[in-house]
Design a protein around this nucleic acid. Structure first.
Lengths: 360, 360
DNA sequence: CTGAAAGCGCTTACAG
DNA sequence: CTGAAAGCGCTTACAG
């Protein structure tokens, strides 16, 4: 078969890598057979299988993902979008959980299903414009909270399956979150019942964070039925960062504000900043003020005093998020759209437990 | 236009999302015009542009990434492969730099070029089998060190552009690393010349890590021209983890081994473990033993004493890695294949600088 | 400036 | 079990 008159080579791009045609020719088979062997579909004869595999090996052939995706209608890629830290450069990543959620949870689970993970950072400002583009490159999306309004989420969910981390699911989306309520409740009980503290404050995360809001509400609710009072107000607004936590304490003290007996922080980073700010002013933790966190990141164990906190099942949250998404992508009929995972109170020293005999 | 006899619907997949044909029809234009407007190519009339954009908006059309990639010969995706932590569950991520390198460096730079980042974790065992698959989904790869042999790297580089993080570039690949040599040299000079220490040890990372090897060699070299002695040997082999660092110290002390005046750790995590192990035995840092790290992760500032270390330009390393890769993907003729970025000695308390008057 | 058409590299019914 | 062929949804020379 030498090229005849119809051989009008177009040569748009300098053909670089091998195609399935090269493999088929090398193996003396059709591209259909090559495809079947490579995908384990049909039931190719073992000789066919061997010839294909040998040709693949000899040529170092790697199928093109884009062509597979277009043809099969499945990219085998999910997108994960996290909030970009607002003030890069000052502190470490705003979310030390990123690594863990993505790599240990989502990515591990995705790998088991043969999917890959596309990551993207976005701010509240550019998320609406960046997400559609991502949608085109993936089969489904896992989103950090506070990235999109419920309306925008619902709209996005018409394009492809969407799972959010934290908060209740918007219409058409799914959500995976931890049991903020139980966590804060256990914390407050420990502080009030076990330690006998009578004034508490909740140092919040971003005020529009559903997790932070849930934790605040849980604290209010639990304290109401207890002998403890809650110090609240706008000055107790943090932003999930150590710097934010320190700022709140500094401002409060500069104004002659009053410290509660125990400060329940929205997360560990905040607690870290609070403890630094208190230490700078010679205020002892937990003797004068108890401090607690949320998350149980690694540093929590290295602080002085070690941090009492609530552990989230980070890895499991990531796995669950992917599994929900995957089930939906593959068309599993009905998937639970609102998964709440259990948390665990981790009692260390910063709540006052280091001082023997003080526990009730 | 009602379907005629030629209407033999194949319906392989239940057509789900809109295509460029829907947009073209809605706008009363050809798909070529829609494509041109969407890609800013050619020079469409402003009326054409408007009609397309309106149709896109009204339909919430998002172009399919796989089709674009197949057609344009460019996926606009780079893959980043990191080493999976060996003993998950015990410690925090082995590499706290992951987050920073990927999100602040690579991802940020990729975003500027309109690329996305596919991440994947791999072990030394499964990397060879996982990488080809990733290669099919991306335009280029950024790899952690110790993932592939030089031979395997060279082979992979025939398939697509490859950049490694750390170590010298294998044939056909590119590399971005930090100036381990200058960092360790500055550290040793400070310990020996400024503090007058006369015995040093290097507590290594994984023995096959090019970074760790470079740091070890630099320490040997610098110490040789100084009055200081180096304690070496297989017992000083760590694995970049806090647990590994603690293990080395424990084993040494259990055997009645001798501690040097200063321990230069392969990274901050190791230093953290060493400091914990020493503290447990009542050995004071830096009074009895000085300890230094490498990386300057956030915890370094929160340790007691605060950690003297060498700061790597993490973010810049990520950016550079992507930029090299991008330049190669886009066919920029010749790209520097071995980029070494400068580091900075960060002097804090763990080297002994806290004790006033002790500095030379 | 715009449209008709080819082609990107696969998968998958459809026949044989 | 295997092959020929259509089709996935785009981009891009090529004409007009």
């Amino acid at each position: 078969m030498s090229g005849g008159a119809a051989d009008m080579a177009k040569t748009r791009k300098p053909r670089t890598s091998l195609t399935i045609y090269d493999v088929a020719r090398h193996a003396g088979l059709s591209i259909a057979s090559v495809s079947r062997v490579l995908n384990g579909s049909g039931n190719p004869q073992s000789e066919t299988r061997d010839r294909v595999m040998q040709a693949v090996r000899e040529l170092s052939y790697v199928p093109d993902g884009a062509a597979r995706a277009l043809s099969a209608g499945l990219k085998e890629v999910v997108g994960v979008v996290f909030r970009r830290g607002e003030d890069a450069g000052f502190e470490e990543a705003e979310s030390p959980l990123f690594d863990e959620i993505v790599t240990r949870g989502i990515e591990a689970s995705a790998q088991r299903s043969g999917f890959d993970v596309l990551i993207s950072m976005a701010g509240v400002d550019d998320a609406p414009s960046r997400l559609p583009a991502l949608a085109g490159k993936t089969d489904g999306l896992i989103l950090h909270d506070r990235l999109l309004s419920a309306t925008a989420l619902a709209h996005l969910a018409k394009l492809l399956p969407v799972v959010t981390l934290g908060g209740r699911p918007a219409p058409g989306t799914m959500s995976v979150r931890c049991d903020n309520d139980a966590g804060v409740r256990a914390l407050v009980r420990h502080l009030v019942a076990d330690h006998g503290y009578r004034t508490l404050a909740y140092l919040s995360g971003h005020s529009d964070s559903p997790d932070s809001q849930a934790r605040a509400a849980a604290l209010e609710r639990e304290a109401k039925d207890s002998p403890a009072r809650v110090l609240a107000g706008p000055r107790w607004t943090g932003d999930y960062s150590a710097a934010g936590g320190a700022r709140v304490i500094s401002a409060l003290l500069a104004d002659g504000g009053r410290l509660p007996r125990a400060i329940v922080c929205a997360n560990d980073q905040t607690a870290l900043g609070v403890m630094h700010a208190l230490a700078q002013r010679g205020i002892r933790v937990p003797e004068e003020v108890a401090v607690t966190g949320f998350d149980d990141v690694a540093v929590a164990r290295h602080l002085h005093p070690t941090l009492t906190t609530v552990r989230q099942p980070i890895r499991e949250m990531g796995e669950t998020a992917f599994d929900l998404l995957h089930a939906t992508i593959m068309g599993r009929s009905q998937v639970e759209p609102d998964v709440v995972l259990p948390v665990q109170l981790v009692v260390r020293d910063s709540c006052g437990c280091a001082r023997p005999g003080e526990k009730a």
